[in-house]
Amino acid sequence: MSEHASDTTEQDNLDTPAAIKADLLAGMFFLVLGLVIAYLSWDMPRLETRRIHPATIPGLVPGLLGGALALCGFLLALSSARAAPLASGWKTFGHRFVGAEAKRVLALAGMVLVYSLGLIGWLPFWLATGLFVFVAIVAFEVWLNDAPAPLARSLIWAAVQAVIVAGAVTFVFERGFLVRLP
């Protein structure tokens, strides 16, 4: 518990060098994004041929919002640049992407993408769902775990749960709530 608490505190601290660098990059990203949106809004058709009032052009609000986003991005980047020297902190920032936590997130995101963009549509929904549930449980119980479960036990129980979930979700949503499934 205490181990977990200290782990969270370190990650959550807003003033860590890594967080400051993340803010700097995000600020610059929002500055560019805001400017791009403002430009696209400026470039948007003003519908002169339809004789609309010039104060009601479709690009008005997105343009203002783009400008506001760019300003906020600039201010965020500026405050981050002032908070710490530009050259320092990049190493700790980089560590965020290589640790065990990053591996867990990337693994799950990968599984989610393969299931949603690949398996659904290619396989029947119940089969795709069963496979996703099975693989995700085993991966997080056996390989991506600090206290791994025995492989054989995990395989058996994950298979049982996968069958139940695939069957139950398909049945409850299709028959019970009359919802169409992907």
């Binding site: 799950l108 549930v133 449980i137 119980e141 775990n145 979930v165 992907p182």
Partner: peptide, 15 residues
Amino acid sequence: PREKLMPVVYVLCVV
């Protein structure tokens, strides 16, 4: 355990 729960929650998110 979250390992057993979260995959199911994601399936519900898709549906």
